[in-house]
Every structure is written in C-alpha cells, then in structure tokens.
Computed example of a mutant assay.
Amino acid sequence: MGSAEDERFRMMQNLIDFINKNYIEGIINDTSYNHFDMLTYFIILFAGVYAVLKLLNRLKIEINETFVIATIPYIIMGSVFRVIEDADILNPPVKYFFITPLIYFVIFAICFSILLLTLYLERTGRIKSYIHMYAGAGIILSLAGVIILIYNSDIGFPEPDILLYILLPALALTEFIKRISPAIGMFYLRSRVYSFVIFSFLLDSLTTYIGTVQGYTNKHPFSSFLASIFGTGIILVPLSLILVVLIIMMLERESRGDKTMDEKYMLILTLIVLGLSMGARNLLVIAFGI
C-alpha cells in the first residue's frame, strides 16, 4: 500500500514540477516561451475564440468589418499595458496579470465589460449606436497607457525616427500588396480588415528582426529557429507576408462555402490579435528603449 502511495506522490510531484518549469516559471520570470506553453496557449486561444463567438451570437451581436475595426484599439491597449509591465512599472503580484497568458484574460475582461455596457446603453435607448462608444473607450484606454509609459520612461517621448523606420516599411508593403491585389486575382486584399491583418504580421516580423539586431531577445522559439536556419532574422518579413496571404486566401475560399460571416470575421480578428499584439508591443519596447 505504501509503495502505491509513494508512486502516486512521485507522479504528482513530477506533474507539479513539469507545470512549474514549463508554465509558472515562465510567467513569474517573464522568460522565453517553450514548445509546451506555446502549444497550450494556442489551444486556449482558439478555444476561447470559439467560446466568444458563441457568446456574441447569443447576445445577437453582428461580427462584421466594423466590429473588428472597433475592437483593434483593445488589442493595442493590451500591447501598451504589456509594455508597462516590461518597464517594471507594476509590482508583484499585479504584474503577473499582465504577462502572457494572463494578460489575454485581463484585456478580454475589460473589453467585454465595456462591450456589454455600451450594448446595454444602446438597447435601453441611452445612446444611438454602441459601436462608437465601444471603440472610443478602447482608444482612450490605449492613450492612457501610452501616457503612463511616457511619464515613467527615461527618454520621455520616443524619437520619431525610431517609429518611422519600422512603421513606414510595414505601411508601404501593406499598401503595395493592396495595390497589386487585382493583378493577382485577390481583390479582397483591398478590404480594410485584410489590410490590418497584413500590416499586423509585417509589423510583428519587422519589429522582431530590428529588435534582435538591437540586442533584444526573441522569445518565440519558432521564429528564432527560422532565423537561425537562414542566418538572418530579415527572412521573417517575406515569410510572414507569404504566410498571411496564404491564410487569407484559404479563409476567403472557405468563406464561400458553409462558413458564416461571423466565423470569418472572428478568424480575421484572431489573426489581427496574433500579429498586432506582438508587433505593437515590440514597437513600443524599441521606441521607449525598454
């Protein structure tokens, strides 16, 4: 009997050690991701996307281009407050809630609470349209976070050229894809939401490359692996562009079938979250020298 109990104790201790090593320590120490936590977070993300989709459908909220664009300020807000944590402005245990993956739950709670409030105000006749107040609240919170960064930063306002040499190439490449899209038979790339998707992925890859050149550590094992194979991180830019265009192409092809517009736009929003959340964070970290 004692031997069986000892074996169960060892198994439980091994499980606790595994969770601590691959999940808890990464959050507490804000270290690079590993294959276990990356896979787990992706599963949680897509399970969460499905749950949110069903919840929004129950609330009879139409998920369309306007809704996606109105939600983008909350993605930026998440990046801003992630950088606030990077800057050591927050202290434990509060700071742990602003490290992946906990920050996704925090930002979702804020975003969804504001969505419910603005929706309630619209449906009780207090405002005409919830979408403008919903988007506006996200913009205000994002700006508030930037002000906190400026106030607590050693350099104050970031140098404009730091922003320009990252933002301009991403914007120029996005505009280039938009303009050539009819020539390659992909007119849908001219839509605002797909432009945001392309820009988000380009911003992520450009800031990852520039950040590593400036001495920052790339915490994502897959992109680090690709950079090591090709000998340079600049390869992430064309690879991310090819990847995102292929994903959009498949998404458009699937949406012509049984997939509802709600599902399509929810997946588009998920793509923007994946690219913009990391890209905007990298941009702010570089700009503020954190």
Rank of each mutant, 00 (worst) to 15 (best):
N34F: 06
P73L: 06
P160T: 14
Y134C: 02
E122V: 09
L45Q: 10
L115V: 12
K219I: 08
G145Y: 04
L271K: 02
A137G: 11
D17Q: 12
C111A: 12
T207D: 14
S205F: 05
A135T: 05
N64T: 10
A109E: 07
T124C: 06
A109D: 05
I139M: 13
T31C: 05
Y41Q: 14
L284F: 01
I150T: 14
N218V: 14
H220Q: 12
I235F: 11
T217M: 09
I19G: 02
H132K: 13
F108I: 01
I84D: 01
L203M: 15
R123T: 06
F98K: 11
F81R: 04
I180R: 06
S205H: 07
H220S: 05
F187Q: 14
I210C: 05
L246V: 15
V213Q: 15
T270C: 13
L274W: 13
L241K: 04
N91V: 12
Y74P: 05
M266F: 03
L39R: 15
L239F: 13
I234P: 00
I27E: 00
T66C: 00
N22T: 12
P238F: 09
Y33G: 06
S142C: 12
F98T: 02
N152A: 10
L236S: 10
K219F: 10
P92N: 09
L45C: 07
Y130T: 01
V52S: 06
R126F: 10
N282S: 04
L251K: 05
P238A: 11
M249E: 13
H220F: 13
F230G: 14
G185R: 08
I162K: 15
F196M: 01
S153E: 01
S32F: 08
Y151S: 11
S200V: 02
I107Y: 09
T71Q: 07
N64K: 11
N91T: 14
F46D: 08
L171E: 02
V52P: 02
N34C: 11
F288G: 02
G2F: 04
N282T: 03
I99H: 14
T212V: 15
I286P: 00
Y188M: 02
K54M: 07
G26P: 02
V49C: 07
M261G: 07
V273I: 10
Q13C: 06
F157K: 10
F199A: 04
L39H: 05
F36S: 10
S191F: 05
R10C: 01
L283N: 00
L243T: 14
S79Q: 03
V80D: 04
F67D: 06
G145L: 05
S223H: 07
E62V: 15
A144G: 15
T71E: 03
Y33E: 01
S240A: 14
Y120L: 08
A109H: 04
R192Y: 05
G279Q: 02
I166W: 03
P160C: 11
L274T: 00
V106G: 04
V285W: 00
F225A: 12
G138V: 05
A227Q: 05
I131P: 08
E263A: 14
V83D: 08
V106W: 02
F98C: 01
V273W: 06
F105Y: 00
P238W: 11
M11A: 13
V68T: 12
T124S: 13
F97Y: 07
Y216N: 09
V285E: 00
L241I: 01
F157H: 11
D154F: 08
A47K: 03
I27H: 01
R126E: 10
F9A: 13
Y23P: 00
R58Y: 14
G257Y: 09
K128I: 09
